[in-house]
Amino acid sequence: MFEAKFEDGGLFKKIVEAIKELVKNVNLEANGTGISLQAMDTSHVALVALQLNEKGFKKYRCEKSLTMGLSIENLQKILKCSGNDDQITLRTQDEEPTTLSFTFESKNRISEFQLNLMSLDQEQLGVPDTEYSSVVRMPSNEFTKICRELGNINEAIGIETSKEGIKFYVKGDIGEGQVSVKINDTEKPEERVECEVDEPVNLSFAVRYFNLFNKASALSSQVILSMSQDQPLVIEYIIEEMGSLKLYLAPKIND
């Protein structure tokens, strides 16, 4: 028996919205500690990892660990039948569920849906806990804007960290550009820019993955970029009181 009730169903919709362009079919894992999801995009350049802790739910029960394979596209079709202010409950009775039930509750209506599940034998990558040599915390809409703007100039975006801060740069056929974001310790947390740089990094990434993933900035006003030289970068959106949504992106490396 599994049941998880989102107080704020809109949050669940934003999470699905953020990952739907990156991953197609995913295994949703549920156990006593909460719900998690890990899936790669088709080209294996990006890995999406979601972690939602049971304490963040209005109601949460999971007697036995469950794996529910689902199509993000079909999940979205079901979620489109819910309102952004609905409470959303996920539920299944069986130990080997073939469907996942959804209840959408608002003050004037209650809806029930069943999503057919599928069995997906996806390899799960083991992402080790890593000490990153550069960790930058900045406003998520600022990061989104920089990626979108520089992405118009070149499909690869460079990220360079130093004690002074973080610099994004592009060198394309039409020309080049760079954006240096200054550290600031304003008292408004959502505008703060913090850099912990033990070792500076200089990395290059395909910016289209950032642009696909930055829909997640609706989840949090801040984004955390964790980097080490020649390692995948982690973009993390903290989901208040619930957990986090992470995008791991493999770097482009100079041959």
Partner: peptide, 14 residues
Amino acid sequence: DYSQYVMDRFYLDE
């Protein structure tokens, strides 16, 4: 020029 790496190179299948 730059070559795009993939995740499998960094993280192991569990």
